[in-house]
């Protein structure tokens, strides 16, 4: 049997850890609350008060069940993704801080098997997070529809699945970046700082300068946010600056190209993490 395949026992151990750690549930709660706030509460306030700035006018249809996939999908490339990064850092970085990596590896599992068990558990957790975000949004959209007396009609199952699949993939992308930074720095603090700064500052600033510097424009085509926003663009209908919180002003790439790039990043981040974990001493 290939030694890298995680055992059911290792996977269940990692799921137990994820389930019992309060920080993970807090991150999920923040993801749901931020989603509801940015995707529903603020836009609805703008809609009812008609106070939206140009470019931030909300159509009621976006807040109803028929538009919930499009409304929610745009949150994943930005703030939900950053929360995924924090999750990845916490799950792996803490193993170094608490010296539990040492204790666990001495038990038997093998480094790659342990890594894959942890990533497997994270993949399951990200499914839960994605479903929770979509479920909360769907519920809220029903509330808006009932409040406004609008008809309740749902997007097709295919669109819902595509939205969830894209959301999960984007979350996985950011989470794997967090994993890589945590393994690289063998801790949480530096990884969190670097990851959040990269996600919120570096990509944004370079993309901004990309409007006037061609080289930076080309570079930004490879950015995580560019590809993540491009992946959900067919769902959100966004292909240019739509304004509002978390709005992305481009550039956009072809959604299929974005899918390949994101998958490539996931494999790359996971592969580098595995290599580092396998080769480096655990001190």
């Amino acid at each position: 049997m290939w030694r890298g395949i995680p055992t059911v026992g290792s996977l269940s151990a990692e799921l137990l850890l994820l389930r019992r750690r309060a920080a993970n549930w807090i991150l999920l709660a923040i993801a749901v609350l931020l989603t509801l706030f940015f995707a529903y509460v603020l836009p609805y306030y703008a809609y009812v008060s008609d106070s939206g700035a140009p470019g931030f006018r909300t159509e009621l249809s976006a807040l109803l069940p028929e538009g919930f996939v499009a409304t929610l999908a745009s949150g994943f490339p930005f703030y939900i993704g950053i929360l995924g990064l924090i999750l990845g850092v916490l799950v792996f970085g803490s193993e170094y801080g608490w010296a539990t990596l040492k204790t666990t590896l001495m038990q038997r599992p093998g480094r790659i098997r342990w890594l894959l068990a942890k990533l497997g558990a994270l993949a399951i957790a990200l499914v839960v997070a994605t479903v929770a975000v979509y479920a909360a949004g769907a519920l809220f959209s029903v509330g808006v529809a009932l409040w406004e007396g609008a008809a309740i009609s749902w997007p097709s199952a295919g669109e819902i699945l595509r939205g969830m699949g894209a959301g999960w993939l984007i979350l996985a992308l950011w989470t794997l970046l967090g994993v890589l930074l945590a393994v690289l720095s063998r801790g949480t603090a530096l990884a969190l700082g670097l990851g959040i700064m990269y996600g919120l500052v570096v990509e944004g600033l370079v993309s901004g300068f990309g409007n006037s510097i061609a080289l930076l424009h080309d570079l930004s085509l490879a950015f995580l946010r560019t590809n993540a926003y491009s992946l959900v663009a067919p769902l959100t209908g966004q292909s240019s600056d739509a304004g509002g919180p978390g709005a992305f002003s481009g550039p956009f790439v072809d959604p299929w190209q974005a899918l390949v790039v994101i998958a490539g990043y996931i494999v790359l981040f996971g592969g580098i993490s595995a290599l580092l974990l396998y080769r480096r001493d655990v001190t």
Binding site: G9, S10, S12, A13, L16, L17, R20, R21, A22, W98, T100, T103, T104, Q107, R108, P109, W114, A117
Partner: peptide, 17 residues
Amino acid sequence: YPFLSGRDNLRVMARHA
């Protein structure tokens, strides 16, 4: 793991082992 009980810590280790 500081957030787990002694028993659950051992449970995690036992599952890995």
